[in-house]
C-alpha cells in the first residue's frame, strides 16, 4: 500500500536503462503489479524487464501517466474521454509499423490491457481496406501459399478484393 510519500519503483529495460516511476504508474503495468502481488515484500531493487526497450518503456510510461491523470479527474468524463481518444490517435500516428509492432510486444508482455486494445485497433485500422499484396509488403510478411492454393482462396474471396484502397507505396 502506498504511504504518504509516493513510493517509487525502478524498472530496468532490456538495454539497461533504468526508469524510476511512481508506484501508481508502475501498477498500471499488469506484469509489474502481479510481481508485487506475489512478492509483497520485494526489495527496492530495479525490476528487470528483459523484453522491453527503453524507447518503448518511455512511451508506455507516458501513456500510463496520461491516462492515470485522466482517470484522476474523474467525473467530467466526456471531455476526459475525448482527450484520451486524441492522445491514443496521436500515439498511433507517431509510430510507424515497426515501432508499433515493437510497442505491442512490450505492452503485451507488460500486460496493459487498455493500451494493448488501442494499439491493436491501430494496426487493424492500418490493415483495413488494403490489398493483400500491400499488407504483405507493408508488414513484411512472407506469402506461404502455393500459387494454386492462393488462386483457390482468392476465388473464394473474390468479393473481398473489390474496392480496396489503391496501394500507395
Amino acid at each position: 500500500m502506498s504511504t504518504t510519500v509516493p513510493k517509487k519503483i525502478t524498472l530496468r529495460t532490456a538495454d539497461n536503462h533504468e526508469f524510476e516511476v511512481d508506484e501508481a504508474v508502475a501498477m498500471e503495468l499488469g506484469t509489474v503489479k502481479t510481481f508485487f502481488d506475489e512478492n509483497p515484500d520485494a526489495t527496492d531493487e530495479p525490476i528487470p524487464l528483459p523484453n522491453v526497450s527503453s524507447k518503448c518503456l518511455s512511451t508506455i510510461i507516458e501513456y500510463c501517466k496520461f491516462h492515470l491523470s485522466l482517470r484522476a479527474r474523474g467525473n467530467d468524463s466526456s471531455s476526459a474521454e475525448e482527450e484520451g481518444k486524441v492522445y491514443d490517435e496521436e500515439l498511433i500516428k507517431t509510430h510507424d509499423n515497426e515501432s508499433l509492432v515493437e510497442l505491442i510486444l512490450a505492452v503485451n508482455y507488460l500486460n496493459i490491457k487498455d493500451m494493448l486494445d488501442t494499439l491493436n485497433q491501430g494496426v487493424a485500422d492500418r490493415i483495413k481496406n488494403k490489398s493483400v499484396e500491400y499488407v504483405r509488403r507493408f508488414f513484411g510478411i512472407e506469402n506461404d501459399y502455393t500459387p494454386e492454393e492462393e488462386a483457390e482462396i482468392r476465388a473464394q474471396y473474390e468479393w473481398a478484393f473489390e474496392g480496396v484502397d489503391p496501394d500507395d507505396d
Binding site: 491493436n120 490493415i127 483495413k128 493483400v132 506461404d144 474471396y157 468479393w159 473481398a160 478484393f161
Partner: peptide
Amino acid sequence: IFRRLPGGQERSSCACVS
C-alpha cells in the same frame, strides 16, 4: 488485431495474406 477489423471483407483479405 484481426478481431478489430470492421468487416468480413477485411478479414477475408487478411486471410489471403498467409
